[in-house]
Nucleic acid binder design. Structure first.
Lengths: 298, 298
DNA sequence: GTTTTTCCATTCATAAATGAATAGCACGGC
DNA sequence: GCCGTGCTATTCATTTATGAATGGAAAAAC
């Protein structure tokens, strides 16, 4: 016998939102820490229950039908209410234990954060840390992360932010490269050198052009968007490259290259959701992060 | 390992709302068509996950803590969004089959509705009917019923309503009673008769006083709030009683008593949620109800 | 004061859900 | 054109959730 709509299991809507937003059962399964057959069954059960076809089945995923689109609005309202609830719940917790999720750049995840997190783990063994390396702007609103370390001022509402200071950048190269190609004495020498650049990411090009240096994509003999791999390329002698001075100076076999133009600094911000400011494990980790990051900035 | 908050199963919130609003695991289980141990586990899992105590355990049920109260707001937002979603889904259906839930008074559920529903079932075998006898004002907003038959003008927003007409009332008694006690000729004779009245429900008293008849609770030798039982009491000869004239006239062994004061009429309204007006099975049942109820009213 | 009723917590057999494994398909990259 | 990738659908062994049964407690009814 067909059940009433009020008997609909809310977790089916949870699955519906995930599939609608990711575009596939597999991606939704990864997002919800479930499996692809499970998500597939949830969508089928939901469609049978509502008597509606919510998705067009494509070879490479699911696409919302118009009817499915119509239902996504209230479904997202449920997701927003759920996020609100979990935020309020987290804000009320008083245990100095549990998980804390920290988002930061991929590069920082490779360099500064491992030692910092090792330190946090020693000081607070009951707190477990999830590290989210990402060069995209995390949406803290849905609590994909509890605390974020940012290189730009966060502008979301309801967030607490603190500017810790600035990281200076420098231009560096492997000694092996410099021995082979010579040491540039200024901007005029740069066209005679190999420079490691980004691929699709045009941050460097825009920054150089902003300084009056007519850089183009062709200037870069080696290009890579992954910042950690980028640094390994520089270290391997592929050319000149940019790096945070504190990281570079710790790297063996690397020399700082004199530049006669000013390089920008990177601001470093800590940010977290305002509702969590008094959650013991969040405020404790914030404290420890601040303590650890302060010496790295000016 | 403790899971992230975003991994919280939304159906736990569904259970949370039900327990919060009903005040007990058992009542919530009945409401959600689940079992008491299941609801108990859901609340425990939710509390463990959030790290919060949401309810005080009482001997006769669960009472929200302050923290639980705080979370009820977003939890109810989820419920509201779910109701909106299921309404939109229902509004989009195009099948002339499925369940339709009809709410009406207990009395009507006993008398007029069985024949009407038998007729609907014959005409539309693919439509299944749930009948909700209730003398309380159902909240159609959360779709406890799809269509309601009302004796007062529904005033909720977003509803479609139609006034079908009015049911007339009369005063009746069993022939056996009248043979024994005589036939009253007017209001002046009433104090010499037994009248079947209500118990806690003071509708009759208020109505009589409104007509200038100084009725009190003591006037009624037999009192019962259950309207079907009430009518059986009248039929059994317990005294004079009020009834819808169409129902009374079909009852063997019952005589209408002449009264020299006007009795009120009962308006009959059909009402349903506006969003469902084009849902085939809803509009079909509405049609059939209207067709069947029209002859009963003037 | 006693009995009845309603509730929650616990146990465990059963039912239902899950996910590993797999096949097949279509698209994208080379 | 071929190969690799990512996807969905299906099957079935395993895991997990459910609910029947039960005991105990407290409140309500008599």
């Amino acid at each position: 016998m067909e059940k009433r709509l009020t008997d609909l299991d809310w977790s089916l809507i949870q699955s519906f939102v995930a599939v609608a937003e990711t575009g596939s059962l597999s991606a939704a399964a990864r997002q919800l820490n479930a499996s692809q057959p499970t998500l597939g069954r949830h969508i089928r059960v939901l469609e049978d229950h509502l008597g509606l076809e919510l998705f067009h089945r494509q070879a490479r995923g699911f696409e919302l039908t118009h009817k499915g689109q119509e239902l996504l609005t209230p479904a997202r309202d449920m997701a927003a209410a759920m996020a609100d609830l979990s935020l309020r719940a987290a804000g009320q917790e008083n245990r100095l234990e549990g998980d804390v999720r920290i988002a930061c750049s991929v590069f920082m995840a490779h360099h500064a954060m491992p030692d910092i997190i090792a330190d946090i783990r020693q000081k607070e063994p009951a707190i477990k840390i999830d590290l989210l390396p990402s060069d995209q702007s995390e949406n803290l609103l849905f609590r994909e992360a509890d605390i974020a370390v940012r290189m730009y001022r966060p502008e979301q509402l309801d967030m607490i932010t603190r500017h810790l200071g600035n990281i200076s950048l420098g231009m560096f190269a492997a000694q092996s490269y410099l021995d082979r190609k010579g040491r540039p004495r200024g901007a005029v020498d740069l066209p005679h050198h190999d420079i490691v650049g980004y691929d699709a990411n045009d941050d460097i090009i825009r920054e150089m052009r902003g300084m009056g240096i007519p850089a183009t994509r062709d200037w870069f003999a080696v290009r890579c968007d992954n910042q950690s791999a980028y640094w390994e390329l520089v270290r391997a002698g592929c050319g000149l490259g940019f790096c945070q001075t504190d990281v570079a100076r710790k790297t063996a076999g690397i020399e700082e290259v004199t530049v006669d133009f000013p390089l920008p600094v990177l601001p470093v911000w800590l940010t977290a959701h305002e509702a969590l400011r008094h959650t013991p494990r969040i405020s404790r980790v914030w404290e420890l992060l601040e303590e650890a990051l302060k010496p790295l900035v000016s």
